[in-house]
């Protein structure tokens, strides 16, 4: 995060920083129906940003995920790898319930994300606190500014100065500010693919998620744009918990702290990334990372 001067100057016009400890902030109160104050004190300890317990998912009668269980520590990057069709995207989309959009999906077991029980939480609040970046850049056909401001406006922020400050901050964090600062009112569709993807990341950062899910975020991009996204991921993990699905093992090795290997809906192995790639404990993992199948 080099270009910091921009948002440092913004600090003066905002309230003093809350002294939330990094972890506590990702454990807000459970979704009480009453208004929860901005500075609500952290309640229960959430040891992990995501915890999955004996989680299964079915398309109709077909099991797509079978008894998955693992934890994702806060402020880390976890990569999910596996051959196509193994359920990695499905697992990722379980964390913000995007699978709700598909008819006939049924789940068992427990998933807690950002302190919320995914199954019982208000889905709108859950998704707001769990950002998602998709395989193909999907900016709205609106201006760059309006793309980033979209989520903020949903939250009822109408004040122009505040919107501008938050948009700038998000674009800075997504390392896009310097490229678009002069053309915030141009259509987002005029940006290059890589820029569009960083815009989508900025859009997702604007609503201050605690966890960011990335579904093959660089697979539609050229190598240069991919490198920039990877850099950004490494930078962002200081403030966010990131789960990234990728079919690219080199990418997983480069950016992740921990790697999970999924095969046919089963979690075969999850471990520190260096260890998983150098001395996997399961034969299947070894076969996969050495290219025997997949």
């Amino acid at each position: 995060m080099k270009p910091r001067a921009g948002w440092m100057s913004l600090a003066t016009q905002t309230r003093p920083p809350s002294v939330a400890p990094a972890r506590g902030e990702s454990a807000p109160p459970p979704p009480a129906p009453a208004a929860s104050a901005p500075g609500a004190p952290p309640v229960a300890e959430a040891p992990d940003a995501i915890s999955v317990r004996d989680f299964s998912l079915f398309y109709g009668a077909h099991p797509a995920l079978k008894h998955i269980g693992f934890d994702v520590p806060a402020h880390s990057v976890t990569a999910i790898i596996g051959p196509s069709g193994c359920g990695k995207s499905t697992l990722l989309r379980s964390f913000n319930r995007m699978n709700d959009l598909i008819a006939g999906v049924r789940t068992e077991g427990e998933v807690r994300v950002a302190g919320l029980d995914v199954r019982s939480a208000d889905v709108v609040e859950l998704r707001r606190r769990v950002g998602m970046v998709f395989q193909r850049p999907n900016p709205f056909p609106k201006s760059i500014f309006d793309n980033v401001a979209f989520g903020l406006r949903l939250l009822g922020i109408r004040d122009r100065a505040e919107l501008e400050a938050r948009v700038e901050q998000s674009l800075l964090r997504a390392a896009l500010w310097n490229e678009v600062r002069d053309r915030l009112n141009r259509s987002a569709l005029q940006l290059s693919g890589g820029q569009q993807q960083r815009l989508c990341i900025a859009r997702c950062l604007a609503v201050e998620p605690e966890v960011i899910l990335m579904d093959e975020p660089a697979s539609a991009l050229d190598p240069t744009a991919t490198a920039r996204i990877e850099e950004l991921v490494l930078d962002l993990k200081r403030a966010y918990t990131i789960v990234v699905v990728t079919h690219n093992m080199q990418q997983a090795a480069r950016i992740s702290d921990r790697t999970a290997f999924l095969l046919d809906g089963e979690l075969i192995e999850i471990d520190e990334t260096p260890r998983l790639f150098t001395s996997p404990s399961r034969k299947l993992t070894e076969d996969y990372i050495t290219g025997r199948f997949g």
Binding site: M98, L101, G131, F140, G151, R203, V207
Partner: peptide, 24 residues
């Protein structure tokens, strides 16, 4: 499809997501 997922993933309600789609 893509717009709907994008807006819902940002925490839009169904109606708010519809506004984006209809606009496009």
């Amino acid at each position: 499809r893509t717009l709907r997922e994008a807006s819902l993933a940002l925490g839009a309600t169904r109606a708010e997501s519809l506004a984006v789609t209809l606009d496009a």
